[in-house]
Simulated assay, not measured.
Amino acid sequence: MTIDPWLSRWLPLVLERVNDGRVLEIGCGPGDDTATLSAAGMKVHAFDISSSAVRKTKIRVPSATVECRDLREPLPEQATGFGVIVASLSLHYFAWSDTQVIVRRIRSALRPGGILLCRLNSTEDHNFGASGNPEAEPNFFLVNGEPKRFFDKCSVESLFAEGWNTLSLEHFTTRKYVKAKALWEVILERSDA
């Protein structure tokens, strides 16, 4: 893995919207974004399904609250009224219907005007499974036995069509995992609708 400072350019917006200083991070992995947010003075509540990732993040960012949690389960009871939620490359493991439910839960955890910063696998992400694997449903493959969803622009727009204002939608290639990884970076605001 290499350093991927994607979140740095969004810190001014995050600081503007964070409200009470609390940020929810979904799928923290080894804590890269947790460390960035914490260093910027935020109180981070992070979770990941991997107990190994949670252990690493707790050691790396002791000021953060970090727990092991499956995103398919309801969000923590205290996950309400957030001004900012971050979900970097963590919303792609699910069937479309489950993904829609998860996005509705995320929206419910934000206060009106709160923002979601997320990154999603792109259908152009061929180095990491967007082609050549058994397809369970459109753009949802079994990659080395693990489910992985890949998004095109239309599916990103569809996923966030109701209750969201899109502030930014950009396609990028990162070297986070050494090989080129294609992804969508999406910044959304919870609308009152």
Rank of each mutant, 00 (worst) to 15 (best):
Ser155Gly: 12
Ser51Lys: 14
Gly83Phe: 02
Leu120Lys: 11
Ser90Val: 02
Ala53Glu: 13
Val44Glu: 03
Gly129Pro: 03
Leu117Lys: 08
Arg190Leu: 06
Ala79Leu: 04
Gln100Cys: 11
Ala180Asp: 14
Ser38Ala: 02
His171Asn: 01
Ala130Trp: 01
Ser52Arg: 14
Met1Gly: 15
Met1His: 13
His45Glu: 13
Ile49Glu: 08
Phe94Cys: 03
Arg107Leu: 12
Glu67Ser: 10
Gly21Met: 07
Lys58Ile: 06
Ala79Gln: 04
Trp96Leu: 13
Gly145Ala: 06
Lys148Tyr: 14
Asn127Leu: 08
Leu11Asp: 07
Thr173Ser: 00
Glu185Pro: 10
Lys58His: 11
Arg72Val: 05
Ile26Phe: 04
Phe128Trp: 12
Pro62Gln: 10
Arg9Trp: 11
Glu162Pro: 08
Val44Ile: 04
Phe82Pro: 04
Ile3Tyr: 15
Gly132Phe: 01
Ser168Glu: 05
Ser51Phe: 11
Asn144Val: 10
Leu24His: 04
Ala182Gln: 12
Arg107Lys: 09
Ala180Gly: 12
Arg104Gln: 15
Asp152Ser: 14
Leu169Met: 05
Thr166Val: 05
Ala109Thr: 05
Leu15Gln: 12
Val66Tyr: 09
Trp96Pro: 11
Leu117Val: 10
Ile115Gln: 08
Gly83Trp: 01
Trp96Ser: 14
Gly132Cys: 03
Val103Pro: 12
Ser8Asn: 12
Arg105Ser: 06
Glu146Asp: 15
Thr36Ile: 02
Pro147His: 01
Trp184Met: 08
Ala35Thr: 01
Leu71Ser: 03
Pro5Val: 11
Arg55Gln: 15
Asn19Arg: 14
Gly41Leu: 03
Leu91Met: 00
Lys181Arg: 11
Arg9His: 06
Lys181Thr: 14
Arg9Asn: 13
Asp192Tyr: 08
Gly145Thr: 08
Leu169Lys: 02
Leu169Ser: 00
Lys181Pro: 02
Leu75Thr: 02
Ser90His: 00
Val14Ser: 02
Ile26Tyr: 00
Gly41Cys: 00
Lys176His: 07
Gly81Glu: 01
Asp98Lys: 13
Leu159Tyr: 06
Asp33Asn: 02
